[in-house]
């Protein structure tokens, strides 16, 4: 039996499939549809210090091979998360990663500290990349200094593994990734959604109340896969791949590109059984190919490419 246990700096998961923030709510919403024993971990809906009502509807628009969403970080706020949502999530038979977002480094510090001190929270995910919240200045996800400031603040507040979720919407993801790692990130999620929009021809209006939203689903996969390839070569912390993963083959592409684990989100909407099927498919692939551990896949495509290049040079 192949071993699919996955280690992400201080956090051991029974398998590399993690459910992405925002898609499973706080967890219990999907308890009847997802067998949580089959997933490595879930990332709860991003919480902010105060409750947020989110963006005006419509909040969703389907695209060719994808989905635009502009939820706007609707959430119950820190206090209700700790008193109501987290205790419920803690009952689920999987690991809980709590996602937080703040407006300032001080808020990130407070949020990371408050969720990080709970036993049920196995790691803290720092969401610096939600595209649906208006910002006046340069967004943090596109700003290495801003990223360093919020990660430093969060790092000072918790000893739990700190995972930073990057945005694909930057010309220089390496500088942002290095800034996050330099400030103490234990792992990176590469990456969040990409901004996009659609027009409702009947209403002659933008399809989303927020005008633009984040593109997820299969259309996003090649973009984020390329970013995983790039970032995983440059940093020495685990990279968690995310973006349009719906099948075991998709997940294996991310692992071979350099990801240590993957996040699955939008695929749940069509098939809540997708995470379990991905785990099964990875295990089957390992069995068929005689792989004993997940580590054998991580960055395999880069190693192969290197071998090919060396062979050509030698010839």
């Amino acid at each position: 039996m192949p071993d699919i246990t996955t280690k992400i700096t201080g956090l051991t998961l029974r398998n590399p499939v993690v459910l992405a923030s925002g898609t499973v709510g706080y967890g219990p919403e999907y308890a009847e549809l997802i067998d949580y024993e089959t997933v490595g971990a879930i990332v709860t809906k991003t919480i902010t210090r105060e409750p947020r009502e989110g963006n005006p509807p419509p909040r969703l628009a389907e695209t060719h091979a994808g989905l635009l969403n502009a939820i706007g970080l609707e959430n119950v706020g820190l206090r209700r998360f700790l008193s109501e949502k987290l205790p419920e999530a803690a009952e689920l038979p999987t690991e809980i990663i709590a996602s937080v977002a703040g407006g300032t480094p001080a808020e990130f510090c407070e949020l990371a500290g408050a969720v990080g001190e709970r036993d049920a929270v196995r790691a803290v995910e720092i969401n610096i990349s939600c595209p649906n919240v208006r910002r006046e200045r340069r967004p943090v996800w596109d700003d290495p200094e801003g990223t360093a400031a919020v990660v430093t603040a969060a790092r000072s507040a918790t000893k739990k593994p700190l995972i930073v979720k990057l945005s694909p919407n930057t010309a220089d993801i390496l500088s942002v990734a290095e800034a996050a790692v330099g400030a103490g990130a234990d792992a990176l999620v590469v990456a969040n959604t990409m901004p996009g929009m659609r027009i409702d021809l009947e209403k002659r209006l933008p399809a989303l109340g927020n005008v633009t939203g984040g593109l997820s689903g299969h259309a996003l996969m090649p973009i984020n896969l390329a970013l995983v390839w790039k970032v995983s070569a440059a940093v020495d912390v685990p990279v968690i791949g995310s973006g349009g993963i719906a099948t075991a083959e998709d997940a294996l592409e991310f692992l071979m590109a350099g990801a240590t684990a993957v996040q699955v989100g939008t695929a749940l909407f069509l098939d809540p059984g997708a995470p379990a099927a991905i785990v099964w498919g990875i295990r089957e692939h390992m069995r068929m190919n005689g792989a004993e551990t997940i580590d054998e896949y991580i960055g395999l495509a880069r190693e192969e490419k290197q071998r090919c290049t060396e062979k050509i040079a030698a010839d």
């Binding site: 499973v24 709510g25 419509p58 969703l60 628009a61 389907e62 939008t266 749940l268």
Partner: peptide
């Protein structure tokens, strides 16, 4: 009726005011 993703209340996509 609204465009809907999860169907379970998780994603907060199909809201009305």
């Amino acid at each position: 009726e609204e465009i809907m993703a999860c169907g379970t209340g998780a994603c907060r996509g199909c809201v009305v005011n």
